[in-house]
Design a protein around this nucleic acid. Structure first.
Lengths: 194, 194, 194, 194
DNA sequence: CATGAATGAGACTTCATTCAT
DNA sequence: TATGAATGAAGTCTCATTCAT
């Protein structure tokens, strides 16, 4: 986000908000410009193409994921606790930014443009790698079962996180994501703990 | 699908195909009619609105889920084996019908119409209930751990199934879904088995 | 109407009804066929073109006007009473057939086809001629003022009749046409009586 | 019309022209844009919906009626003369703007939209009220017969005005509206004068 | 930290009509 | 006393984008 001007950031956040509201179809230049309070063509001063705005959205996601990862590693050096913190923080972040939650797991939105789908793929991979790394550390310390491949454990953790957020979103945020997320984490933890 | 005429089924399948190719944006009346080989307006003899075609797509999904569920229960009466079969069959079905896979987990596509999102929700719920039921049976027979709530176990199973399919799709079907799916299942099985 | 088959009459009446409901735009082959209970193409067995149905509507009007005229002349031989009866009967007929009222003064509907607009013109002229004739008779008997041209008196009578019906229709039939019509007639009568 | 931009006024006038030519069916976005000399979608910058153009047309009517009313009251303070002037001016205006005449009495055109039909109703009512007021003034000064209700006199005046314009229009403007209108007014005047 | 006008492509949908059965 | 399928033209409207100011 450091590469983006203030105005650009404003536009990106507005875009996330719009998508959150009614899906990607809600993200039109017209609606976006209305939300910002300028005329349509004014947006083109800040982004040459609509897809550059989507690219900006992905940049927000990436940055956020990285920030959480660093925070987690700073807080504790016990891998299992780091993983737990990772989960908890994600849920907290999504609770506070439902719009982001609304977009972050909807990869389909980015399928049509190769730049976009590539970036989605890259973010996913990086994130996965980080979780795998934490799991492996946990296994080394004998905190996490060693009879299961770290990649698969990581995969299962990530999948559960993703689905709970998706369901929360489809339920229109009617249940407490922090609470339900915590429960799921606890079940997962008991499954993988030694 | 029994409520649909031959021509309607044909249209629904063509629609699934189009969506699979490039996402929901690819599903336009024009492209759909071209694929069928008629003029645009001809489609309206078979479906009054575009959304009725989407409704038809969901009907295909529901029917398929129900069919698999019944087949699974017919094959074995050991819950854990039923669950495994459920997984394996799903992967097999998706391998053979990537187009369906492409749509089935993209709930966002159906968000804008209340009829559609309601049907999506209903299908999800029914499916979840069935898995929970199987897990409970497994717990009764002491095949599955009892120290974890059946709903949560079911949730985790479903989430993994869903993510592996999603990744396969995003990877443009470049890995073998049956194989990877089987691996994931085995990990999951070891996690929940007693 | 004698030239029309039973089915054709049925279609014509249904068409009048549809137009009454929401204007000429409501008269589509689809809606008409639904109302009749057949499939669209079935209508073409009875009328080669849509405009032939409109022609049929006009035939209903003409026939009705002629019938009222004859009834009126049979009832009395005092011109002023004949004119009053003409008014009263028209209002009664429209009260009972609002659909007809809805179409009969909407000449614009028939503007686009020369056959249609010609027939509208002809009906109007015939009707006018009849009223003028009655007024002239009234003048001859010294019942009606002679200082005003019969054509103009007739014109004024017709115009009032027409507007009261139009207003009744625009008011969605919320006032009693018979009553208001009678009042207007009485005012008119006092204006033209000797 | 002060609420409309120059371009909007231009569009409204073009729309009136088109309707005059062949009825409301002639008013399509395509034809309208061609007449203006832009592409179809360009119109939507100036009016969000087609019906907003129709609303604009009605605004023209209302404004014109009000202008005439004020002019008439400025010219004379004898009610009967004011009424005569009202008639004459209307005929003059229509003679010069046949397109407007073509639309102003075709209330059916506006039936389908509640905003439109409401505005039509309001214009009609205001106009009627003004005429009634003039008639009442005439009665107070003993210029107009008192044995007839003012509302009914006003109604009859308005109805005649309306029908003569309609006939002129249906006759495709082949007679002189000013002349015929004047004749009708004179007959009416003799009917209502004391 | 922009506005106003326009463009061209394309979206969904409706309509009258035809034709084989 | 008809049905089912299709057609082609047209209609309203939306969208991303461009360009002159």
């Amino acid at each position: 986000m450091k590469n983006y001007t203030k105005r650009q950031k404003e536009i990106i956040l507005a875009a996330i908000d719009l998508i959150a509201k009614n899906g990607i179809q809600e993200l039109t230049i017209k609606k976006l410009s209305q939300k910002i309070g300028v005329v349509e063509s004014a947006l083109y001063r800040h982004f040459p193409k609509k897809q550059d705005i989507l690219l900006g959205i992905l940049a927000v996601f990436r940055e956020n994921k990285e920030a959480i990862l660093q925070a987690v590693q700073a807080e504790s050096d016990v891998p299992l606790e780091q993983l737990r913190a990772l989960f908890i923080k994600r849920f907290k972040y999504f609770s506070e930014h439902p719009a982001v939650a609304s977009v972050i797991f909807a990869e389909d939105l980015f399928r049509n443009d190769s730049r976009l789908s590539q970036m989605v793929y890259e973010i996913m991979k990086t994130n996965q790698a980080a979780i795998i790394h934490l799991v492996e550390n946990g296994q080394k310390r004998d905190d996490i079962r060693k009879d299961l491949p770290a990649t698969q454990i990581a995969f299962i953790l990530a999948s559960a996180l993703r689905l709970i957020v998706t369901q929360w979103r489809l339920a229109e945020y009617r249940f407490d994501l922090n609470e339900e997320g915590k429960k799921i984490w606890e079940t997962l933890e008991r499954m993988v703990k030694n």
